[in-house]
């Protein structure tokens, strides 16, 4: 086997995923950026070319900034961005509050139980996402199962309005994204050396204080990874606010969908996407950085 041939084969293997992901994941963002500067047109596809004949007949570059101006001027868009960030942040926090104790309990369970519990965490994600969100409509609506149960128990007299509020959206996001929070937390927590806690407790530290001083700081990597896995997709979430939220639940994923599907305004939809990417670039890069650091740590540890 000559070295040259080996190098050729290696290049071949690398280029398969590289070419595919460049062409179908990275390059498309260039087109989103390009079309965000176009104008809506009554044509197929429904936007103008950036390069087209100018008034003097010569082709020239037309950069239309109106789509971005429109996003800034219309209150709806600014409010949608802010509200998406708020809803995603609160849902991430709730996910952490539910997911951390679960991940901690699973990591501290007996060896044979761990895999069973992990399976139980992952199992719901193998069934349809759409159907799991649909399940909550039946539970939360005014004449739904939760209100029926509470009323027949005499706890409330009239049904609580939960469906079509932000609360329903929080419940939906926490429900759908909980496994993505638990898994990285578990992976982190299960590696902890329990003797550290024992040493702290032997030296008179209370269990709670030992947790706050040792376990929590050591699990920072897992907290960040889990939170990003929930926060970033939740900002652009469409299905959950559409099915569980009300007409005044403003979220940017819903706005983009409507610009594209109802208004057929591809340039504005592209501008909405570009601004969303700019908003998400900080958490995205941070996520990538933490991922790489964790990997480097793993490889050093070997």
């Amino acid at each position: 086997m000559s070295v040259a041939k080996f190098k050729f084969g290696r290049l071949g293997v690398i280029s398969v995923p590289y070419v595919w992901m460049l062409l179908f994941f990275l390059v498309p963002f260039g087109f989103v950026l390009k079309i965000s500067f176009a104008e809506m047109a009554n044509a197929i596809p429904p936007y103008t070319d950036l390069y087209r004949p100018g008034p003097d007949g010569e082709p020239q570059l037309f950069l239309n900034l109106d789509n971005y101006r429109y996003l800034l001027e219309d209150e709806l868009y600014v409010l949608s961005y802010l509200n998406s960030l708020k809803i995603a942040a609160i849902s991430t926090l709730l996910c952490l509050l539910v997911g951390y104790p679960m991940a901690y309990a699973i990591a501290n369970a007996g060896e044979s139980w761990r895999n069973v519990f992990l399976m139980l965490v992952i199992l719901p994600s193998w069934t349809s996402f759409l159907i799991r969100i649909y399940a909550w409509i039946g539970i939360l609506k005014n004449e739904g199962l939760l209100n029926n149960a509470l009323m027949s128990l005499g706890i409330i007299d009239s049904p609580l309005q939960i469906l079509q509020t932000d609360l329903a959206v929080y419940i939906g996001i926490v429900y759908a994204y909980l496994p993505f929070m638990i898994l990285p937390l578990y992976t982190n927590l299960v590696k902890h050396d329990y003797s550290l806690i024992e040493a702290a407790q032997d030296l008179g530290c209370s269990a709670w204080k030992a947790f706050l001083r040792i376990t929590l700081p050591l699990s920072k990597g897992g907290i960040v990874a889990g939170s990003m896995l929930v926060f970033i997709p939740a900002v652009g979430e469409f299905v959950i606010p559409e099915l569980l939220g009300g007409p005044d639940t403003l979220m940017i994923g819903k706005v983009l969908w409507n610009e594209f599907n109802s208004n057929r305004d591809w340039p504005v939809a592209s501008a909405v996407a570009c601004v969303m990417l700019v908003v998400l670039i900080v958490p995205l890069v941070f996520f990538q950085y933490v991922q790489n650091k964790e990997l480097a740590k793993q490889e050093d540890g070997k």
Binding site: I232, P233, L256, M276, Q291
Partner: peptide, 30 residues
Amino acid sequence: GKSLLGGLITAPMVMPEVITGLALLLLFVT
């Protein structure tokens, strides 16, 4: 370009689906 490949592999998992969908559509149309 190894770290770029790593990024291209992890990014689709967190990227909001509306953005990925729109980007792919614009690619196909072009």
